[in-house]
């Protein structure tokens, strides 16, 4: 059932006057979490931009109750909270809202542990593809060739295929989403909320400051990432993998918008655009992700293993 925007209640979902930069994809994403899940939610937030976006005590610029927590253990803190609510007989959705550093790098051990235990939480990785809060340093999720303040001539390694790594834990639900297509994200969140166990949503979040683009283009660049095939939207549910409609139409590379259209709007890819060899490497990184996705779509996942 497609989501009709006009059906969403007229209310404030975010908290204006927060400390986010103009055009921030994180505050966009947080509004969608509220639209999707409502008020019966507690967020767990490790160090990152979202720690700062809240602004200064005694006010908070994110419209949820929050346990701010140390960088490396957001998933575990959420597991503890979820266990407590269960023991206290309260039905509360515990949602981790963590960046790519807090998820793929320093927080990876806790993420993997919570996934393996199938703890009843929703884990959202807000992937802006670098350590933005400390000033745009490379992360495990920075794509090949991207400029950061610790990769001045461009990153020399490909992006860690994190959604597939979480999928390999064979948890009940894994999805990718983007702030470019909020309805898709909202629907995936709503589905995740109906499932018991570990749910993971990887949210692609273009950052104007770190990717070097005009803040008015956040939504457009997020959409271009999907339209060029650079970011793939999919769902993995109970052992079944499927491409989401927004990505399904781009199986055939010929139907995709040329990758350059996505890259040229971003300052961080300027060296890639000038170097055909680097461009090919970045294409190879993207092709590899598509190869994995299409293999999974053909039924690589074993239904016997599903939880």
């Amino acid at each position: 059932m497609p989501l009709r925007l006009a059906d969403l209640p007229r209310r404030r979902y975010g908290s204006p006057g927060n400390a986010a930069c103009p055009g921030c994809p994180e505050t966009m994403g947080l509004r969608y979490v509220k639209m999707a899940l409502g008020d019966n939610v507690v967020l767990v937030i490790p160090a990152g931009c979202s720690s700062v976006i809240q602004g200064i005590r005694p006010k908070s610029g994110i419209n949820f109750p929050i346990l701010n927590i140390v960088f490396a253990s957001a998933a575990s803190a959420a597991s503890g909270m979820s266990s407590a609510f269960e023991m206290l007989g309260q039905d509360v959705k515990v949602v981790v809202w963590a960046g790519d550093g807090g998820t793929a790098d320093i927080g990876f051990q806790a993420l993997s542990g919570a996934a393996e235990r199938n703890d009843d939480i929703i884990y959202i990785c807000v992937d802006n593809e670098a350590y933005m809060n400390t000033g745009i340093q490379r992360s495990g999720l920075t794509p090949y060739g991207a400029w950061t303040t610790t990769t001045w001539t461009g990153k020399t390694e490909p992006k860690k295929p994190l959604p597939f790594i979480v999928l390999a834990h064979n948890v009940p639900y894994v999805a990718t989403a983007t702030v470019g297509y909020p309805q898709d994200f909202i629907e995936k969140l709503r589905k995740a909320a109906t499932i018991r166990g570990f749910k993971y949503i990887h949210l692609h979040a273009p950052c104007p400051v770190g990717w070097r683009f005009d803040p008015s283009l956040t939504a457009k660049i997020a959409q271009l990432a999907v339209q060029t095939g650079a970011f793939i939207l999919f769902e993995y549910e109970n052992g079944r993998f499927r491409l989401s409609p927004y990505s399904g139409m781009y199986r055939d590379p010929k139907r995709r918008v040329p990758l350059e259209e996505y890259l040229k709007l971003q300052g961080r890819f300027q060296t890639v655009l000038k170097d055909p060899q680097k461009l090919e490497m970045l294409r190879a990184e993207i092709d590899e992700m598509w190869r994995w996705a299409l293999l999974l779509e053909k039924g690589m996942a074993s239904p016997e293993l599903k939880k």
């Binding site: 204006p16 006057g17 927060n18 400390a19 602004g55 994110i62």
Partner: peptide
């Protein structure tokens, strides 16, 4: 502790 409220960073 804090509570969600507008203007945690002032009149932006």
């Amino acid at each position: 502790i804090s509570y969600p409220a507008p203007a945690s960073s002032g009149k932006t």
